[in-house]
Each structure stands twice: as structure tokens, then as C-alpha cells.
């Protein structure tokens, strides 16, 4: 996925993004980090093909483009909220993207089961969303995103509303998913620590107007597991990211 000098101005005149160029390659884990209002979520929406750009180009070279100018089925999105349909069971929620592609329930069944077992919710297929905890709902949301077997997974602060323990657990699970599936992930977050733990590359953004401050690889060749969280290299990564973020914030006189 490639964005070339993309700018986006909202109808009220706010410049959300100016001159953003970013290429996400297969198998990368990119975090978009920055203060609120720096256009992280807007950038993510543009990557998903939601909402047009004011100038610049966006292309998905590896995907088939549909008649509406959007990549076909290769991109999935996990929102800040689980956004499950309350009238559908867990399995039916995971089935939704496949159903919208016109795949029959029977043909989709193996994929639904596979996606649910990836997030350890195989036993909850028949439950309704209201019966699940916040972390489980988020897992269903991830399973739904995986059901289409995407090449690129876009996550918009997916764990912001969860408690720290659940959040760490889900971080590990996402990391595991990324390692085993070979998909590219773009992860929007406010958290230095989360981005330092998860990413193979971090893009720090600046606000007003939203633009890229710095773009650098992290954790090159390091195995990330429970030990990594307490290691010196993790601390160094955090320091590196914090400084970059500090510089991005400092530039506007906070």
C-alpha cells in the first residue's frame, strides 16, 4: 500500500493531513503514533479506502481494485469500538464480511471457525455480544477482521478502552497473529509503550496540520516475548520513541 503526498482537508477547512507519504510493505508492523489531532485515524481511514483525499495519490499495487476504486477484500479494519451487531451471535458477526461478499454460510463455516479459534473464542460461537466482556468483544472484532484473510490489517486504537492486563494479553495475541500469518499491520496508538512493544516500524506524527515527523524501524531482529518487556533493548526502544514523540510535540510549543 502506497500513499504519495496525500493531503486531506475537511469540509470545515481543517487540514487533517498535509503531504503524507507512506509505503507499507508486506509483513511490516507499522505503528502510527502521535498526539490527538495529528490525523492518525484519518490516515488509517484513507488507507482503507474510506473517504477520499483532497490531493495526492493512494494505491494498493498488490490488490484487485473494485469498480468503486477500493481494494477488494484484502484490507480489514478493527475500530476503536468492537462495533459488533448486537442482534447477531458471535459466529454470525464473524460471518458478516463474508456474507457481504456473497459467500454462503455453509461455505464460510470453516473460515468462521478458524478465525474464532485464532482468537480463542471457538466455544463462544453461539453467544450474543452482550454476554461477552470488553476484551472478548474486541477479540470477536479481530476475528471478524481476519475472516476475509486480509493482506493488510488496519487497527485504530483497538485496545484504548480496555484495562491494562487485557490490553497486554491482546497485544501479545496480535503480535502472535502477525508473526504467524505474515500480514501487514498498521496500528494507530497513543501509547509509546504499546508501539515500542509491537512495531517493526514506527511513524511519529505531528499535529496541526497532521504530517509525518519521523519514520524509523525498531526492534530489528529481536524476538519479542515476555522477557522482551523487561529487557534493556525494550527500554532503549521506548526511549527512542519517547524522544521522537517529545520532539514532535515540542515543535508546536506545548
Amino acid at each position: 500500500m502506497t500513499m504519495a503526498s496525500v493531503s486531506k482537508t475537511f469540509s470545515n477547512g481543517t487540514a487533517a493531513l498535509t503531504d503524507v507519504s507512506l509505503t507499507v510493505r508486506a509483513g511490516e508492523f507499522v505503528s502510527l503514533l502521535g498526539p490527538s489531532g495529528c490525523g492518525k485515524s484519518t490516515a488509517l481511514r484513507i488507507m482503507a479506502g474510506l473517504g477520499g483525499v483532497s490531493s495526492g495519490n493512494i494505491d494498493w499495487p498488490a490488490s484487485r481494485i473494485t469498480s468503486s476504486g477500493r481494494p477488494d477484500g484484502d484490507i480489514s479494519f478493527v475500530f476503536q469500538e468492537p462495533t459488533l451487531l448486537p442482534w447477531r451471535t458471535v459466529a454470525e458477526n464473524v460471518y458478516l464480511p463474508l456474507q457481504l461478499q456473497g459467500i454462503s454460510r455453509k461455505a464460510a463455516q470453516p473460515r468462521i471457525e478458524e478465525a474464532l479459534s485464532t482468537v480463542f473464542l471457538a466455544d463462544f460461537a453461539k453467544a450474543y455480544p452482550r454476554e461477552l466482556s470488553g476484551g472478548m468483544k474486541m477479540r470477536v472484532s479481530i476475528a471478524r477482521a481476519l475472516a476475509t484473510r486480509p493482506k493488510l490489517l488496519l487497527m485504530d486504537e483497538p485496545f484504548a478502552a480496555l484495562d491494562e492486563i487485557t490490553r497486554q494479553k491482546l497485544n501479545d495475541e496480535v503480535l502472535e497473529l502477525w508473526k504467524s500469518n505474515g500480514l501487514a499491520v498498521v496500528f494507530v496508538t497513543h501509547s509509546v509503550f504499546e508501539s515500542a512493544y509491537l512495531s517493526s516500524r514506527i511513524v511519529v506524527m505531528k499535529a496541526r496540520p497532521g504530517r509525518i515527523h519521523e519514520d524509523f524501524p525498531v526492534n530489528v531482529g529481536i524476538e519479542r516475548d515476555a522477557d522482551f518487556r523487561t529487557s534493556e533493548s525494550y527500554r532503549l526502544t521506548c526511549e527512542r520513541v519517547s524522544h521522537s514523540l517529545g520532539a514532535a510535540m515540542g515543535g508546536e510549543g506545548h
Binding site: A48, G49, L50, T66, S68, R70, D72, G73, I75, S76, F77, F79, E81, T83, L85, L96, P97, L100, Q101, T148
Partner: peptide, 14 residues
């Protein structure tokens, strides 16, 4: 209708 749900449907090309 929840706007997030609408986004979801738009994203999946409904």
C-alpha cells in the same frame, strides 16, 4: 444507525 456500523459496512463493500 451507529456510524461505526455504517463505516464497517462501507469498508466491506456492502
Amino acid at each position: 444507525v451507529d456510524h461505526n456500523h455504517l463505516n464497517l459496512f462501507e469498508l466491506y463493500g456492502a
